Amino acid sequence: MCYTTSIVPQLLFNLSRADKSISFGGCVLFIALGLGGVECVLLSVMAYDRYVAVCRPLHYMVIVHPQLCLQLVVTAWLTGFGNSVVQTALTMTLPLCGKNQVDHFFCEVPVMLKLACTNTSLNEAELFAVSVFFLVVPLSLILVSYGHITHAVLKIKSARGRQKAFGTCGSHLTVVIIFFGTLISMYLQPPSSYSQDVNKSIALFYTLVTPLLNPLIYTLRNKEVKGALRRQMRRILDVRQS
C-alpha cells in the first residue's frame, strides 16, 4: 500500500496537467526507491518463514522468535532506505541538459540517467550492482527455499497435507513471480532490448498492478473470502439468468 501510494498519486497529478510537466522535487523518488528495496528483502524473508514452517514445523517457534522477526524487518527497512539514499544522491546530482523531457510516466533512475549530459557509465554500473543485490540475490534465496519446501512436501504421504502445504506457499510464490519478473525485465535487461513503450508498461505493472493484486492473492487463502466470492458469483449468475 505504501509503495504504490508513494508513486501513483503524483503520477496521476502530473498526467492531469495540460503540459504534463514534473517538478524537480517530484522526480526525487526517495520514498518509492526505499519501499521497493524493502519489498524485495521482505519477500525473501517471507520465503525463509515458509521454509521453516514447512521443513521444520516443530522448531518454528524457536527459530522464528519475535527478536529474529524484529531484526529481519529492521534489516529490510535499513537496507532498502540506505540504498535509496545512495541512488537518489547519485542520480539527482547529475547535470541535466536539453529540454529534460522524461519519456516515462514518472522519474525512474534508468530514465533519469538518459537525461544526464555527462558520462553515466559509473552510475549505470552501480545501478546494475544494486539491482543484482536487490533482485537476483533475494530471488535466488527464495528459489532455494522453495526447492527445500518442494522436496519436503513431496515426502508427505497425505494428499490433503501436500495441498495444504502448497496452499501456504502458493500466494507468496505468485507475488514473487509477478513482482521480481517485471522488475528484472526493467532493471537487468540489455540496453534497448525493449521499446520505451514496453518499458513504461512494465513499470506500470510493478508499481500499480502488482500492489493491487497483492490483497486478492493473499486473501484467496482465507475460507471466508472464498465463500463470499462464491456467494457473490452465484448472485451474479442468478441475476443474469433471471
Rank of each mutant, 00 (worst) to 15 (best):
W77V: 13
T150R: 12
C97I: 07
T174V: 09
I22V: 14
R235L: 15
S171C: 07
L208Y: 01
L43T: 02
S171W: 02
A76D: 00
L229D: 00
A165P: 03
S185G: 09
P138I: 15
R162W: 02
V111F: 08
P110V: 01
V144L: 15
E124A: 06
S140R: 03
T210Q: 05
D19I: 03
V41K: 10
L139F: 07
R231M: 12
S158N: 07
T182R: 04
I178M: 13
I236K: 11
R56W: 05
V45Q: 11
S185K: 03
G181S: 01
A129N: 08
V45M: 13
G25R: 10
V74H: 09
V144P: 03
S242F: 11
V102I: 10
V109G: 00
G34M: 10
H172A: 07
S185H: 02
A125Q: 11
L70Y: 04
F166P: 15
T5P: 02
S140A: 09
G181R: 00
S242W: 08
V109R: 01
H151Q: 10
R160W: 03
V54L: 05
L78C: 11
C107W: 09
P215I: 00
E108H: 08
F30R: 11
L188A: 04
S140W: 00
F133G: 13
K99T: 14
T88S: 12
V41A: 10
R235M: 13
G167K: 07
F128D: 08
K200L: 12
V8C: 11
L11E: 07
V137R: 01
A18M: 09
S185E: 01
